[in-house]
Design a protein around this nucleic acid. Structure first.
Length: 599
DNA sequence: ATAGGGTTAG
């Protein structure tokens, strides 16, 4: 029903509102729902208007909750509470929709008050109100109160699938994934939202393999998925670096008729990129009917970390031709592509060009990219100049980029000056200490190396152990630096020795410059064999044949020695070896790496 | 009232 027409007077002040109200009263229209709602909506914007709103409701012949419920959600929690207490004093009666309107944004004291009201009104057996209260406690990080309410404490609360899912999702958000899982396993009934709450909860916690396990369980129940579940599963594969599983999920999406929208497709493109297969990413990307800005960014970034600078830049121009305007992420990705290939002039050019042509304001990360670009190329003065000239104070990331460059180019003076500063700015990051220790070690400064070690001990920072994961026939195997624990450890060790012997005949010489112990050269060389990627590759050699591709994912950066060794292994054993390290991908093939030794 | 899906330097 449309409102009876009156000249629409704009309401911007309380006096205009009063004027309008009196006109409506004269016309006998003041109580018409549409007009009353408009008046109330204005009054509700300012707490000063609440008494007026209450009077208006008090004089209304039928102050139905529908009249004031819509206002409540739009009010800030404090005002909503004030308004609610006014309503109650009139007295007007809330209905089952009233509390769920206020609860989602309610801070803790208000939530507790509403809890009391809920009990008083006997709404606790009403699922909407009860679940909203549960969500409010969880949103306030009070898992304890949520558990008490959920557990019933003797109340007659009825738990439905929403209550359970609210708990699971809320606990995951609070980082209590294991508690969430326990509840999840005990759920009397689950829907797609429940399944996805658990899967995405694991993803957020970085527990990708657990996420995939739950996803498999869901499929085993015969339930059809949807786009949300698909996205979570794809992202889990991305995080795990599990290409074979990713392909499987992709196939499942296509077979189960889930709509491949731009977001899901981009997640798939990203998965293929981050799992080491740019070719498959490219195929999905090309087939996209509509490409969002993020799809372009993702593909350009994917090419960048695979060291395919030319392709990344070519794609950027294609994006321009299709009239998609780049954003700050595009700029980061294009600069990364240049930085990873030593394309200094390209980086300079695209920085200026994109900033000027598209009016993008360069941010901290863009200056960081430029520092990285110059620094990697050995132009440390240029890199320093970027920092001196940038309009803000450099953050730890920008300084870290310069520091990393000092390490690569063995600039001891600058590196030391920045290094000690960097570890003060980022005292819990073990990688920073290791970089500094490495730099000092390469100059034979063992006393200072020990000082760095001591600082780490004092601050309880421990060195992150190198870990490499290799996926063989969908089975994921992890190796840790320094230890070899595996059912086939004898065979793997023998293969590792043989592998090193064979590449030794091809000219491999151990590079111990990154080894951090002040010990005899022989001991240093021996320790290199136990680097996690060498163990993973040895295992991969046992399980693959010449011509095959093996994929290794490493948690740290590859060291020089492993990089040299892997190049030779790819040639001697005729394998393509794809290594994803902390920063980028290396494709080893026939004795050459895609990074051209620039990384 | 329950999931809330994609890209970002080092």
């Amino acid at each position: 029903m449309s409102a009876p027409s009156v000249t629409p007077i704009p309401i911007t002040t309380i006096s205009e509102l009063k004027q309008h109200h009196s006109q409506l009263v004269r016309l006998g229209l003041a109580s018409h729902p549409a007009h009353a709602r408009r008046l109330l909506a204005f009054l509700a914007r300012d707490p000063a208007g609440l008494p007026y709103a209450a009077r208006l409701l008090a004089h209304h012949p039928d102050p139905h909750p529908a009249l004031f419920n819509p206002l409540l959600a739009s009010l800030p929690p404090r005002h909503a509470a004030a308004f609610l207490s006014l309503m109650l004093s009139l007295p007007l009666h809330p209905d089952h929709f009233t509390l769920p309107r206020i609860l989602p944004a309610a801070p803790l004291p208000l939530a507790a008050q509403l809890h009391a009201l809920l009990l008083k009104l006997n709404f606790h057996s009403h699922a909407h109100s009860f679940n909203a209260l549960l969500a409010a406690y969880l949103a306030n990080a009070r898992a304890d109160l949520a558990f008490r309410l959920f557990g019933g404490g003797g109340s007659s609360a009825v738990l439905d699938v929403v209550s359970w899912t609210t708990m699971v999702g809320g606990l995951c958000r609070l980082g209590l994934v294991d508690d969430a899982r326990e509840l999840f396993d005990g759920m009397p009934e689950r829907n797609l939202i429940s399944w996805n709450a658990m899967i995405s909860g694991y993803v957020k916690a970085g527990r990708f393999l657990d996420a995939l396990e739950v996803f498999d369980q869901m499929r085993a129940t015969g339930l059809e998925g949807n786009g949300f579940v698909a996205a979570s599963a794809v992202v889990a594969c991305t995080g795990a670096g599990a290409l074979a599983r990713g392909r499987e999920v992709h196939r499942w999406v296509e077979q189960s008729g889930i709509q491949m929208d731009a977001k899901l497709a981009t997640a798939v493109v990203d998965m293929y990129c981050k799992c080491g297969s740019v070719e498959e990413a490219w195929r999905v990307f090309q087939r996209l009917p509509t490409k969002g800005l993020t799809s372009w960014n993702c593909m350009i970034g994917g090419l960048a970390v695979h060291g395919r600078c030319k392709d990344a830049i070519e794609l950027f121009h294609q994006m321009e031709r299709e009239d998609v305007a780049p954003d700050d992420v595009t700029l980061v990705n294009v600069l990364t592509a240049c930085a990873h290939t030593g394309n200094v002039s390209g980086g300079r050019h695209y920085f200026d060009y994109i900033v000027q042509r598209y009016g993008i304001e360069p941010k901290m990360e863009h200056y960081g990219c430029m520092v990285d670009l110059f620094g990697r190329a050995g132009l440390l003065d240029e890199a320093k100049k970027v920092i001196d000239d940038m309009p803000m104070e450099p953050d730890i990331g920008v300084l870290g980029a310069l520091f990393g460059a000092c390490k690569i180019h063995r600039d001891l003076d600058l590196g030391e000056a920045i290094g000690w500063r960097v570890i003060e700015l980022d005292p819990q990051n073990s990688g920073r200490y290791m970089l500094l220790a490495n730099l000092l070690a390469s100059a034979g400064r063992w006393g200072d190396v020990a000082r760095v070690r001591q600082l780490m001990d004092e601050r309880n920072v421990s060195k992150e152990a190198g870990r490499s994961v290799i996926e063989i026939d969908s089975e994921v195997c992890e190796f840790q630096c320094g230890t070899l624990r595996h059912p086939e450890e004898k065979e793997i060790f023998a293969m590792a020795k043989d592998m090193m012997r064979k590449i030794g005949l091809e000219g491999y010489a151990p590079d111990t410059s990154d080894v951090l112990h002040d010990v005899a050269e022989e001991a240093k060389e021996a320790s290199l064999l136990y680097h996690s990627e060498k163990l993973a590759i040895a295992f991969g050699l046992l399980r693959t044949r010449p011509g095959d591709t093996m994929r290794v994912t490493k948690n740290l950066r590859v060291c020089r020695d492993c990089h040299e060794a892997t190049k030779l292994i790819s040639r001697v054993f005729e394998r393509e070896i794809v290594v994803r390290d902390r920063n980028r991908f290396h494709h080893f093939r026939d004795g050459v790496c895609s990074c051209n030794d620039y990384w």
